[in-house]
């Protein structure tokens, strides 16, 4: 569904080195790694928000180009850490910005919004608020609704729960997993939390310094670490009972 072929990108230093990655349809891949490893950059390149220096991105067998980038973006949902909701619009206006552009009729919009409210567990009355009147968890749910408005096959999430407090995060992780499976979406999730990566992802791709050093299930990674860095990364997760 998503195929990344030999992508390289250099800013001041090289952030992506010849990265290739395939995400089969209906699967969730968690992209994990330390800060600055290039995982967010890779996500932006797939979304066509920045151009790679070399390499290709194929979305549903189509190569991403300047000509088809707008239509391909509409086939992918995108959720970022802070939600990225437009502060001058109400939650509902955030949802209908793109459908309005595409000329959807009011009925169709309302119907879709109601479906998504149910799916993401949002009360329709919350949609009349401005983003600054929403809690962090609500904002992320509405951000997800916005990403799902056009019912894309692909969802890209960049640390979507990074700034959500633990209780809400726990709940959201559960809901996300349910939604992804129910809708059979192809998902690429960027996170730095191994637990979240393992819980949500069918597969985990572990990145370090611009390369994917291991890709597999959580069991593969834990039982068969590719190198000492992977081992360290796996062991760096703290159990709450560790020091008790």
């Amino acid at each position: 569904m998503i195929s990344v072929k030999r992508i390289s990108k250099t800013y001041d230093e090289q952030v992506l080195k010849d990265v290739s990655l395939d995400i089969p349809g209906g699967k969730t891949v968690s992209l994990i790694g330390p800060s600055g490893c290039g995982k967010s950059t890779l996500l932006r390149i797939i979304m066509g928000l920045i151009d790679a220096d070399s390499g290709r991105v194929l979305i549903k067998e189509q190569q991403l180009t300047a000509q088809n980038v707008l239509s391909l973006r509409r086939q992918m949902g995108y959720v970022i850490q802070s939600g990225g909701l437009f502060p001058h619009l109400t939650a509902r206006e955030n949802l209908t910005l793109v459908t309005g552009f595409l000329g959807w009729e009011g009925n169709r919009e309302t119907e879709r919004i109601n479906e998504l409210c149910e799916l993401t567990n949002i009360a329709p009355s919350d949609l009349d608020r401005q983003p600054d009147g929403l809690s962090g968890g609500q904002a992320q749910r509405i951000s997800l609704m916005r990403a799902l408005m056009l019912d894309p096959d692909i969802i890209l999430l960049d640390e979507p729960l990074g700034s959500i407090d633990p209780l809400v995060r726990y709940e959201l992780q559960r809901d996300l997993k349910g939604i992804f499976k129910k809708l059979r979406k192809t998902v690429l999730l960027v996170t730095h939390d191994l637990g979240e990566a393992a819980y949500l992802g069918d597969q985990i791709a572990l990145m370090k310094s611009g390369t994917i050093i291991q890709k597999g299930t959580i069991n593969d990674i834990v039982s068969n670490p590719a190198d000492s860095f992977v081992e360290q990364f796996v062991n760096a997760q703290r159990s709450p009972l560790e020091d008790v």
Binding site: L49, L70, R73, Q81, G84, P87
Partner: peptide, 27 residues
Amino acid sequence: GPLMESARALGLPNTFILRRVELPLAV
């Protein structure tokens, strides 16, 4: 930056983003 990225990620053309997101936010 993230806000602009969100707008572009919706697959909206630049003129539309300018009219509906950038100018209103710059008001």
